[in-house]
Every structure is written in C-alpha cells, then in structure tokens.
C-alpha cells in the first residue's frame, strides 16, 4: 500500500515534456523488444533491439542521468550492437531462424533459466523499491552528474570496477587466443615473391575474361568468346556447368515491362 502510494506520487511528478517523451518512447521500446523476439530475420531482430536500447538511453537522460544515457547509446547501441550486426552480416542475409531444435532439452533449460532470471530481477526490484531510502536527484547530482558518478566509481566501487574490467580483459584476450592462427614467418609470402610468381612463364597475369556475352545472354554460365569465336573456359567458374544456348535463349527477346 505504502509502496503503491509512493509510486503514484512519483508518477504524479512527471509532467510536460518528460511525460510526453515517456509516453511516446515507452510503447516504441516495448514494440522494439517484442519485434526482436518475433522477427524471423536475424538482422531485423538486431535492429528492433537497437530501437529498444535507444529508447532506454533516452529514458536514462530523462531520469537526469545524462552520462549513463549517452554511454548506453555509444557503447551498447553504437558499438556492441554493431558488432552483433557485423557477425550477422557475415553469416548471410537470408539465414533465418530454423524451428528445429538442435540441442536436446534446450527448451526446458531456457524456461528454467528464464524463470530464474525473472525471480532474480523481481527480488532486486522489490528490494530497490522497498528497503532503500531514496536520497533524491539533487543530492546525487550535487557536484554534477558526471563528477558524482566518477566519485562513486573511483572510491566506493573501485574494487568492483577493477575486477569487472579484469574479467572483460580476460575474456577479450581469451577470444583473441581462440581465434588466432599462428603463422610461421616462412609461410608469409612477400609482395615481390607474389609478383614474381604471377609473372612466371605459364601463368597468365592479366585478369580473366568476364563471362556472359551481353548481346545474347548475361548469365554467368555463358562463357566469353575469344577473338576467334571459341568459348573461353577461363571465363566461367569451375563449379558452374557448361551451358550451351538453346534456340529460345538466342531468339530476340521482347522488352520486359
């Protein structure tokens, strides 16, 4: 009862621009979160998450935490989500979610972990709303938002801060070691060696002729013609079947609309 009264009182204080921004962005943030779960395409999912995070950043600014808001946008939305996108783009644009479960018992574990996480967050929220004694923004931001934050990070929480950064550095170094391929110096081919190899007799240094005879077909499976009219094998990829043009292919085509 007491708690809900406090919440109501807090909600009553929100007026004007702050309230308008909240009521515009809150539905967008929720829609972004839902869209992230529902989108089939992985890149679309990531983009919905970006929208959600951007709204969160603005909320932080609204709550008189401009520094954390900007850092949210720069670090999470700008850098980390960009790395997500980077990987997704490398995977390929057409790869969509498959509905077949490859790990056995995945759903069970996911439900358990989800319940555990929501319990954890619920308890944290309850404790934050119940026991803690709010000091108010004026006191927290007395020396300026950034200075106040810096003072806390580098005095009271300096140990936690350093341990977290050590953890992150360990993770980064580990990732680099896992992804690193050691090459011996002999394996590296230098530029002059590469050039000499290219110009050795028997190797044709110029670019290969491009496929497709554009007056008849622009297919990559159509070999280029050499000056004497014979098709050039070098012009088509080895994995493509050789394709002779049928009479229908050769016949003049009407302009498509």
């Amino acid at each position: 009862m007491n708690l809900s009264l406090e919440l109501l009182a807090a909600a009553g204080d929100v007026k004007g621009g702050e309230a308008a921004t909240f009521w515009i962005l809150a539905p967008i943030a929720v829609l972004g979160a839902l869209g992230m779960v529902w989108a089939r395409n992985a890149v679309h999912s990531a983009l919905f998450l970006v929208i959600s995070m951007l709204c969160l950043g603005v909320f932080y600014v609204l709550q008189a935490g401009p520094f954390i808001g900007m850092v949210q946008i720069i670090v999470y939305t700008g850098a980390i989500m960009m790395l997500f996108l980077f990987v997704l783009m490398l995977v390929g644009r057409d790869s969509s979610d498959s509905l077949i479960e490859t790990l056995r018992g995945q759903r069970m574990v996911a439900i358990l972990l989800g319940v555990g996480l929501s319990l954890l967050m619920g308890i944290a929220l309850y404790r934050a709303l119940g026991d803690s004694d709010p000091k108010g923004l004026t006191e927290a931001n007395a020396a300026g938002n950034v200075t106040g934050l810096a003072r806390l990070i580098f005095t009271k929480y300096v140990y936690v801060f350093e341990v977290t950064s050590a953890l992150l550095i360990t993770a980064a170094v580990g990732a680099m070691i896992l992804a690193h391929i050691q090459k011996s110096p002999e394996e590296k081919i230098s530029q002059p060696e590469r050039m000499l190899k290219r110009f050795l007799p028997g190797n044709y240094p110029a670019p290969k002729p491009g496929p497709g005879v554009f007056s008849t077909s622009d297919s990559v499976a159509t070999p280029a013609r050499l000056p004497d009219g014979t098709p050039s094998d070098r012009s088509i990829s080895k994995i493509l079947p050789t394709r002779e043009l049928t009479s229908a292919d050769v016949a003049p085509k009407g302009t498509e609309k």
Partner: peptide, 28 residues
Amino acid sequence: DIPVAVLLVLACSSMGIYGVVLGGWASG
C-alpha cells in the same frame, strides 16, 4: 548544451554508422 554535450556528438556519429552498414547490407 548539456553536461555531456561532446558525448552526444559521439553518440550521433556512432548511430550514423548504422546508416552505412545497413545500406550496405540491405542492398542485397
């Protein structure tokens, strides 16, 4: 002007990258 104005410029430039990256990806 805000207490973290320079960070706002950085945030805008980091969001601007999305335009370039998504433009490249969406072209197919």
